[in-house]
Design a protein around this nucleic acid. Sequence first.
DNA 1: ACCCAGGGAAAGT
DNA 2: ACTTTCCATGGG
Length: 303
Amino acid sequence: MEQGRIELSSLPSAFDLQSTLESGQSYLWWREDGEDYADETQHGGSKWYLTTTRVSDEPAVIRARQHDGGLEWQSTIDAEPILSRRLRLDDDLDAIRSTAPDDELIERAYDSYPGLRLVNDPPFGTLISFICSAQMRVSRIQEMQQSIRTEFGTPVSFDGSTYHAYPTPEQLAAGTEAELRDLSLGYRAPYVQRSAELVTDGTPLDVRGNPYEEAREALTEFVGVGDKVADCILLFSLNYLEAVPLDTWIRQTIEEYFPKCDRGNYTETSRAIRDALGGEYAGYTQTYVFHFLRNGGGDELSG
DNA sequence: ACCCAGGGAAAGT
DNA sequence: ACTTTCCATGGG
C-alpha cells in the first residue's frame, strides 16, 4: 500500500474534503464508515472516503481523508497527481468567487462552505451515475453506483479487503437490462445499458473542444441524458465550469431570486442564469448555491 | 395511502 | 416546437 499526504497550506486556496464530496456532485466516492454524520467537529470531517480509478487501464483504489491540515491518502498506486486533478486542488477559489455577482444569497453560500471545490470525475462514471440520478434521492443514487460496481466492476484487493472498480463501458454494456433492473435501477435500467453500448460503439463522450452549447447538445445523444444531465456531465467531469444544471433546486432559486432569468425553455433560461452568475465560472457558483439551499440555508434568507 | 426524489422518453397537440 | 403522460423504487 502506498500512502502520502498533501499539505493543504501549500495549495492556492482553502480545501474542504467533506463539503466537496457530500455536496451532491459526485456519486463515485463513498464514505468508508456509512452513517456517522454526527462527528463533524473537525474541519474537513476527518472521515475516510474511497474511490476507484484507472491508470493505464489498470483499476486502482484510493482512500483519502482530511486530517490535521493535510489531505492524507492511501492507495494501490501513487495517488497524489490523481487526487490533485480529481479534487481540483489547483483551483484559485478567490479568483473564481470574484467572478460571482454581488448578491446576498451567493455571498452566504460561499461563506458557508469555504474550501468546497468542484470535482473532476471520470466521464463514464459521471454519465452513468447522473442517468441514475433522475427523480432519485442522493443516498439511493450512491447505493445504485455501489451495486453497479459490485455487480459489473473488476475486483481490486486493497488493504486486506476486496473492492470493485467502476465498470468500464464494455463491462456495463455486456450486462442485460434485466440484470440492471435487479439492481433496483427501475426505468433507468435500459437507459444505462443502452448508453453504455453507445459508448462502446463510439459515440463520443469526451466532447471537450466543442463550444459549450454544442457539447451539451452532443451529450443528449445518450439515452437518459437530457439538457440537465448533460450539464452535470460537462460541469463535473469535462471541465465546462460555466455549465449550470437546471434542476429542481436551481429552478426554484431562479423563481425566487432571479425571476427575470426564467425564459420558459432550457436553452434561454440557461443562457440567462449563466450570465447572471458571472459567466465563465457560473457552474462553480451554482454548486455553492445548490449545496447551501439543500442544507436549508435559504430558510433564513427568504423570510 | 400519498408524495417526493439533482428528469427524460414517448406520445399527443 | 411545445406540452402532458408515464416511468420504478424506496423513504417519509
